[in-house]
Design a binder for these strands. Structure first.
Lengths: 229, 229
DNA sequence: ATATCCATGTGAATAACATCACAATAACTT
DNA sequence: AAGTTATTGTGATGTTATTCACATGGATAT
């Protein structure tokens, strides 16, 4: 089976399947059907099968998927068989929280460098053992530490400036936590994590909940009608 | 013009247009065409016009959009004419960083309550003036402070438990920073911000960059070929 | 061995979304 | 006041993604 293009959304889902499978694996469950996994991940079961079909055949008909095996395969597909070295730029509240956060390490992402412009911060050694370096050393240190992905946690106004520096070194992946549109040359891959975009979507849906749901208001639990309708 | 369903992606884009428009407004620019805005936001100009058309007619033919006016309209559409009260649950590294982060306030999102289970943390007053309350007081305080949205920044294992408590009070919006699939009754709206999903997508694209781009390797800037191809 | 089960893998159908292309129309020009 | 210009708003079209529905084939039981 040959597919020309793989939907970006399929990759996102593979990532979510990974989480579910790890959870199931930790419960010592050996096999799961696409139907059950779909229920757990809140997607269509055909969707799961198709997502996997983009990359091969990993199931056993009449049985399902062997969890450990599928987990291994998906991780291989995603490129998680290697460790990814991250550099973080901007050691404010968010930057510090990110570097201390355990979820990254769990999946094979490893912070190996940290940068800031604030002279008070430069030189400080973080609890994880890495030192905060001046932005001027970005190129040198990123090459030295073989950084794969740059995580931008600067204020919005500084982000593009940082990106311009990054595009001078062979760090092709950028994870942008600042709420700003970044412009990069072809060949670089930028992903945004924008808190307020998500909040805006929540705000929109919450604002429109009232009207869109009125038709089936009676389906709502009683406390919804009581307080909000 | 009547539309039956508005794509979720359109709402996300509206949010991004807001940022661009605010930026333009701060530069004292008065009017912008869909073409220019599209270039800035890196989307198709027809896309912008269609996104807006879902909600009305906001432009002037032959001229473009008046920035202040459009900004006002989009904010109204998104529900940002009111302030949204947030409660945060889980005051670890991430929770503390989020509450201190300035991007929320800028857009009319206001943290009004904070919760944790750790007795050492409970009672502490945060720099923003709000106290950390025990999770047991969730219902009481959320009603008192009229919380609209709960922000979950607990470890993955605790998230569902927290959500179960939230669904007992009329807080219908949940922003989940934990890397776990949450299950909520109908009527609740959950959005995920999952760092590792984004990193996984980066890892995938970076792993596959080599092969997918080889055909047009000569288009790459010289330093890509030099170091990486 | 053969039959029966059951969940996969996938072609076809459907649905959702994005883009094109142009008629409609407001402002500006002469 | 009529013509020109510029950009919107939108029907038509094209593209991409999701879901359906079932033939396929491995595993198990008889």
């Amino acid at each position: 089976m040959k597919y020309s293009r793989i939907p970006a959304a399929a990759i996102t889902r593979l990532s979510r399947y990974t989480r579910a499978l790890e959870e199931l694996d930790s419960q010592n469950i050996k096999v799961i059907s696409s139907e059950k996994l779909a229920e757990y991940c809140d997607v269509n079961s055909a969707q799961i099968r198709k997502d996997l079909a983009y990359f091969g055949e990993f199931g056993v008909r009449g049985v399902g998927y062997f969890i450990k095996e599928l987990l291994f395969e998906i991780k291989r597909i995603l490129g998680l068989h290697k460790e990814w070295n991250l550099a973080i730029i901007g050691m404010g509240n968010l930057g510090c929280a990110l570097i201390a956060h355990s979820n990254f390490a769990r999946q094979g992402y490893r912070f190996v460098a940290a940068f800031d412009v604030d002279p008070d911060k430069i030189g400080r050694i973080l609890p994880t053992g890495i030192a905060i370096s001046p932005l001027g050393d970005l190129k040198k240190i990123c090459l030295e530490k073989e950084v794969d992905i740059a995580v931008i946690a600067t204020p919005a106004g500084k982000a593009q400036e940082v990106v311009d520096r990054i595009t001078e070194i062979p760090v092709r992946g950028i994870l942008n936590f600042s709420p700003s549109q970044l412009h990069v040359p072809e060949g670089f891959i930028v992903h945004h994590i924008d808190f307020t975009v998500k909040l805006d979507r929540l705000a929109y849906r919450l604002s429109h909940l009232r009207t869109t749901n009125r038709s089936r208001a009676s389906d709502n639990p009683p406390w919804i009608s009581k307080h909000l309708l």
